[in-house]
C-alpha cells in the first residue's frame, strides 16, 4: 500500500509539472497582456498544489503554510496586475 501512494504521488507531481509547463507556454506566447496575467494566475495555483503535494509526501504540516502564502500572494498579484491593465494605475 505504501507503493500505491508513492506511485500516485509521483504521478501527480508529474502532472502538476506538466500543467505548469503548459501555463508557461501560454505565458510566453499569449497574444494579449490579459492572457499572460491569466496564465500567471494559473501558475500560482499550480505552485500551491505542488506545495500541498510536497506536504503529503514529506508528511509535514510546514508546507501547509507555504501553500497558504502562495495562494495569498497569487491573489494579490493577479488583482494588482488586472487593475493595472484596466486603468493604468493600481490604487485609484
Amino acid at each position: 500500500m505504501k507503493l500505491l501512494l508513492e506511485i500516485s504521488l509521483y504521478f501527480s507531481q508529474f502532472c502538476i509539472v506538466l500543467a505548469m509547463l503548459l501555463c508557461m507556454l501560454r505565458l510566453l506566447k499569449g497574444p494579449t497582456a490579459q492572457d499572460r496575467v491569466l496564465a500567471l494566475d494559473t501558475l500560482w495555483i499550480c505552485a500551491m498544489l505542488f506545495a500541498l503535494l510536497l506536504g503529503i509526501g514529506f508528511a509535514s504540516l510546514v508546507y501547509f503554510e507555504w501553500a497558504m502564502l502562495i495562494a495569498l500572494t497569487g491573489f494579490v498579484s493577479s488583482v494588482a496586475l488586472a487593475k493595472f491593465l484596466m486603468r493604468g494605475e493600481i490604487i485609484e
Binding site: M1, K2, L4, L5, E6, I7, S8, L9, F11, S12, Q13, F14, C15, I16, L18, A19, M20, L22, C23, T42, C46, L49, L53, I56, G57, F58, A59, S60
Partner: peptide
C-alpha cells in the same frame, strides 16, 4: 516519507483523490 504500515483504507482514497485532482488540473491548463 510515508509510513510502512499504512492502511489500505487510507492509501486508496488518498491515491484516488490525488490522481483525480492532478488529471483535472492538467485538463484545465
Amino acid at each position: 516519507n510515508i509510513p510502512e504500515d499504512i492502511s489500505p483504507w487510507l492509501a486508496i482514497p488518498v491515491a484516488l483523490l490525488l490522481i483525480c485532482g492532478s488529471l483535472i488540473t492538467l485538463v484545465g491548463t
